[in-house]
Amino acid sequence: MGLTSYVIDFARGNADFVLQAAATAAACGASVYFALRRWSPRVLWWALTAACTIGILAVTLRPAGGYAQSGASCVVHGIDLEFFMASDMPGNVVLFVPLGLSAMLASRSPSLAIVCGAALSALIEAAQAVLTGIGRECDSSDWLMNTLGAVLGAALARLYCTRIEPRRNRSMPARHR
C-alpha cells in the first residue's frame, strides 16, 4: 500500500475528524488574517500560531463518543512497523504541520517552533490522561507524531525563509520590498 492510498484510506475512515480539523483551521486562519491583514507579517504569523493552537486544542480535547476511563493512564508504544501504520498517524502528523510552520515564521527559530509543538502535544496528552471524562486516551505515539508534524512544518518554513523568500526579494524592485 502506497502512501497516497494510505492517506486516502485514513481520510475516508476518519472523515469527521478531517473535516472538523480543516474547518477549524480554515475558520481560525481566515478570521485572524482578515482581522490583522494591515499589521506586520510577524504579528500575523504569531496570531496564526495562536489560531493553530486553538484549533488543535478544539480537535484534541473535544469529548469523544467513547467510554470514560476510570483513572489517569497513558499507553506507551514501542516503535516498530505497526506503530507507523496505525490509522491515526497521518492525522496526528498533519495536525501539527501548520503550527510548526507558523511558529517558525513568527519566531524565525526552528528550535523554538519544534519545542512549542512538542510541549503543546505533551500538554494535550497529559490532559487526555487526567481528564478521563472526555473519553480520550493518552498515547505516546500521538506525542511523537505530533512532534514530527511540528518538525515538518518548521522545516517547510525554514525552506521558505532560506530558498524562496530571498529569490523573491531579489526579483522585486527596491520600493516593493
Rank of each mutant, 00 (worst) to 15 (best):
L81P: 04
A64T: 10
S102Y: 04
F96T: 02
D139V: 04
A103I: 00
V59I: 12
V94G: 02
P63F: 05
S73H: 12
G149P: 02
T162G: 06
R136Q: 12
P90H: 05
L123I: 15
C52Y: 01
L123D: 05
F34W: 15
L112E: 05
V94T: 04
A58C: 09
A51G: 14
A155Q: 09
V115G: 07
R38K: 14
P110N: 15
M85Y: 15
R158H: 11
M85C: 09
H77N: 15
V76F: 06
L156C: 11
S73I: 05
Y33N: 08
E82R: 13
A64H: 14
A47D: 01
D142P: 02
I124S: 04
V93G: 04
G55R: 00
S87W: 08
Y33F: 15
W39G: 10
N92S: 06
L156A: 13
M145R: 05
T49A: 09
G100S: 08
L144A: 14
M89Y: 10
A157R: 00
W46I: 00
T53P: 03
D142M: 06
V59A: 08
A154D: 03
W143Q: 04
S31G: 15
A68P: 10
V75G: 08
C116G: 14
Q69F: 09
L148G: 05
G153W: 00
T53D: 04
S87E: 13
I54W: 02
R38D: 13
M104N: 12
A129P: 02
A126Q: 05
W143L: 13
G29S: 14
L61D: 07
M85R: 13
C28N: 12
S73R: 06
L131D: 08
A129F: 10
S109N: 15
L144S: 07
A155H: 04
L44A: 09
Y160F: 11
M89S: 11
W39N: 12
L144W: 05
C138D: 04
S141Y: 12
L156Q: 06
M104C: 15
F96S: 01
L36S: 06
V93W: 01
I56G: 01
V151Q: 09
G135S: 06
A103L: 03
R163V: 11
L152I: 14
L36Y: 08
